[in-house]
Design a protein around this nucleic acid. Structure first.
Lengths: 197, 197
DNA sequence: GTCTATAGTAGGATAGAC
DNA sequence: GTCTATCCTACTATAGAC
């Protein structure tokens, strides 16, 4: 089996996933039909099913891409040497969402679907756990360095604050999805002015 | 047209909406079929369609009931005389969600659906606007009384903080939906310890 | 590998008896 | 007013030609 074939296959799969993402952004995961994805991809039904066994598989693949990239955003940031201020961490996460997904509606849809789809729930949980963990590690380092707390005190404070950071990001995402003109900057400013201490 | 008939009709409508809510809680809005709602209500297809023109109408009616009750929770609280501490306001909102909806999964589903359904979007927006407004009025009063701020300063601070409160609630709801064992008390404690000031 | 045409099915909504 | 039986649309997935 020559390498070209595998690469071709992989590229095609991504191409289909890209088209599916665009459709899901417009219509939502469930309301989007295979006909929509087929039209958007420019391929045919037969071709699509050569690369994915089912619509469910396309949904899960697309969802994995969406959330996987968010995790990387945050993990990369927490490793920077002059540790960014908490504002920056939240902002980068939100900017990544905005940049790559145009608007974060799709994430809200994903959480909604996860409430009744075990596989998506597992996926969403995993991502939130990883992001929360990254926030926690980051906050521990931050409180030690900036506030001179002991390892234990810093870790305890971080463990307490991390879920609130996660929740604040989720709240920002939900509100951005609900209101076209939601003022993300004002929200992040207010968040950072009152949260970290 | 005798009064009894209208009351009977209204009662039946609520009965059907109750059954639909139970089904939506289990399966989600889209995955729930009319057959599910019919079975849960104990009625028949013909009977249901005598009270609601479509599944969409049932979804919208149910959604309105879900979120309408949340608004009342908060508005009632903000009118109490010894003004409750900010913790309490958030807690009551979350407790109302927990009590009446068993778990807040359905709200996350609702937000997800709203991302692609204009009517639900309008509904969700209206509710968030009202709750945000209530938070704002409450926070203005709070900052005047507790922190001795001027009317203007209190209002400005409240306007800045209200969306963060809303976001924090939404984050709490999303995380409660994602994790069976999410520690709401710890979250609210952390939120309140760091947010209001 | 990709297309067209279609099989198979689920589910929303209705017609007509009682 | 309510039930049963059924219509019909819309969608996922496959079969078979090229």
């Amino acid at each position: 089996m020559p390498r070209v074939t595998d690469e071709y296959r992989a590229a095609r799969r991504e191409e289909i996933a890209d088209a599916a993402l665009r459709v899901f952004l417009r219509k939502g995961f469930q309301a989007a039909s295979m006909a929509d994805i087929i039209a958007e991809s420019g391929l045919s039904a037969g071709a699509i099913y050569g690369y994915y066994a089912s619509k469910t598989e396309i949904v899960h693949r697309t969802a994995t891409r969406i959330v996987g990239a968010r995790v990387l955003d945050v993990e990369r940031l927490a490793e920077q040497d002059p540790l960014p201020v908490p504002a920056e961490v939240v902002r980068v996460l939100m900017d990544g969402v905005q940049r790559e997904l145009q608007d974060p509606k799709i994430l809200v849809q994903l959480w909604g679907e996860a409430m009744t789809d075990p596989a998506l729930l597992e996926l969403a949980r995993g991502v939130v756990v990883r992001i929360r963990g990254t926030f926690e590690a980051y906050l521990t380092a931050w409180h030690r360095r900036e506030n001179g707390l002991s390892e234990d005190d810093a870790a305890a404070l971080a463990a307490e604050q991390a879920p609130v950071f996660v929740g604040a990001c989720q709240g920002c995402i939900v509100q951005t999805g609900l209101f076209e003109d939601f003022d993300r900057e004002a929200y992040l400013d207010a968040l950072v002015r009152h949260l970290p201490r």
